[in-house]
Amino acid sequence: MNKTKLAYSSSIAAILAIITIMVVTIWGELSPPFKAWLAGFTGHHWLSKSVLSLIVYFVGLAVFYLLPKNIGPNTVRRGLIFLIVTTLAGSLAVFLFFVWHYLV
C-alpha cells in the first residue's frame, strides 16, 4: 500500500466530506422539505448526515487512492493545508450560519 498516496487521498476525501456536511446542513435549515427528505433515510436528519459523511469520506478515500495521480514532494502537504483551511472555514461557516439563523 502506498501510504503517501493514501494520506493525500484522505486529505481530499476529508475536504469533500466537510464541504458536503456544511452544504447539506445549511441547505437543510433553509429548506424544510429537504431536511424532512434527509430525515426520511434513517429516521433522523443528523443520523442521515452522519452516514452521508462516512460514505463521502470512505468512498472518496478509495476513489482518490485508485485514480492515477503523481504525488510530488509538496502534494500531500498542500492537501493537508487545504484540509486545515477547509475545516476552519467550514466550522466558522456552520457556527455563523446558526447565529444568523437564530437572530433573523
Binding site: A7, S10, S11, A13, A14, A17, I18, I21, M22, T25, K49, S50, S53, L54, Y57, L80, L83, T87, G90, S91, V94, F95
Partner: peptide, 12 residues
Amino acid sequence: HIFLFIIPLAVT
C-alpha cells in the same frame, strides 16, 4: 454538525 468533521480529520 462540527462534530461530524472530526472522524475524517482524525482518520487522516
